[in-house]
């Protein structure tokens, strides 16, 4: 395995509704990540993540290409998935020896549509989607399954929200942050029992970019590169009834393959758009009490679609790069109720 590291990370402000178009949002983010990396264009490989359907715009990624600087022509590809998987593809390209540097970016504009409804179109088109089960209701099914199994309460979930919002106060890119009072949160009505507003992610628009570099290029680019020591992803059955929703076996498997448990973890950035999912993921990755989870506030405080997973990797990498952590785990998810999961292990040395 070649030594590949994250050498820079940048993200957009994650607004509830961005009036700028994709290129206007992405261009400054890409420019910032490139500038911080100190690596001059052209990159050996560029890869992005986004979803046409999300934006109601076919070929959204084609429009966004203008932000990446594709002249002279560049080796470039795209996944119609969260940017975390675009980062994976770029990492693979470098591992194959066909690139030394890579630019990865992602964006998602959820505000034009009704996100929970749009996400219903991810489901089996013959037997599930026609029922239009929105994403929040599905998450609620999972939350119920987990609470029944563990005996956890709504208060336990609210505590996760309170902690995340407090941590998000130091994150200028968070959509939601502040000192929430747990009683006030619990007094709110359920949106889809047992989930209340604070248990669910805010809808927002955002973008992010990361630069990867191999070996010497990484050492030259960055004082403290965040080395990718392991990265893996796995998918589970699509049908909710075919899985035990109270656990995340694919996260556990991906974590094992990526070697998450091979050392002490200082920080974990887990892509948990719903409060109960943070608990499920913690367990799947075997993260003990001593691990600081989601110091950025996590997806509960900013959840730009197709980007939040990449941002988890970027935030975890930032803790390595700023010296506050020696070993970090980042996680990204895709699909209903944590169907598909990616785990990335980062180290400072």
């Amino acid at each position: 395995m070649r030594d590949v590291a994250i050498v820079s990370f940048a993200q957009a402000p994650n607004r509830r509704r961005e009036l700028r178009n994709e290129v206007e949002i992405l261009m400054p983010v890409v420019q910032e990540a490139v500038a911080r990396s100190g690596i001059e264009r052209p990159f050996d490989f560029t890869c992005s993540g986004s979803s046409d359907f999300l934006q109601g715009q076919p070929f959204a990624f084609v429009i966004a290409l203008d932000a990446a600087g594709a002249w002279p022509p560049i080796p470039e590809s795209h996944v119609e998935m969260d940017g975390a998987w675009a980062l994976y593809e770029a990492w693979v390209k470098i591992q194959s020896g066909q690139a030394e540097t890579a630019l990865v970016y992602a964006f998602g504009k959820s505000s034009p549509g009704d996100l929970p409804e749009v996400l219903a179109t991810q489901l089996d088109p013959y037997v599930l989607a026609p029922l239009w089960p929105d994403a929040v209701s599905l998450a609620a099914l999972q939350a119920r399954a987990w609470m029944e199994k563990t005996g956890a309460t709504a208060r336990d979930l609210a505590a996760i929200a309170v902690r995340s919002r407090r941590d998000a106060k130091s994150n200028p890119n968070a959509t939601v942050s502040g000192d929430a009072e747990i009683e006030k949160l619990l007094a709110a009505p359920a949106i889809a029992d047992p989930l209340r507003a604070h248990d669910c992610p805010p809808v927002c628009d955002g973008a992010a970019a990361i630069v990867l570099a191999a070996g010497e290029r990484a050492r030259k680019a960055c004082a403290r590169p965040a080395w990718i020591r392991g990265i893996d992803h796995r998918i589970e059955p699509h049908s909710l009834g075919a899985r035990d929703l109270s656990v995340s076996v694919s996260t556990q498997l991906a974590g094992e393959k990526a070697g998450a448990g091979r050392g002490a973890v200082d920080v974990a950035e887990l892509h948990a758009p719903f409060t109960h999912q943070e608990a499920i993921l913690r367990e799947a990755l075997g993260l003990g009490e001593g691990v600081r989870v989601n110091p950025s506030g996590g997806a509960l405080c900013a959840n730009p679609m197709m980007t939040a997973g990449l941002i988890r990797i970027g935030e975890a990498a930032s803790r390595i790069m700023d010296g506050s952590a020696r070993r970090a785990v980042a996680h990204a998810t895709s699909g209903p109720c944590l169907q598909q999961n990616l785990v990335c292990v980062l180290e400072g040395a």
């Binding site: 961005e18 009036l19 178009n21 206007e24 034009p112 549509g113 009704d114 749009v118 026609p130």
Partner: peptide, 20 residues
Amino acid sequence: NIKTPMRLEFRYSAGEATSR
């Protein structure tokens, strides 16, 4: 075969340049 009509509403924003 089944026919499943779909309807999704999107509110597009033009972006600054297109707006101008």
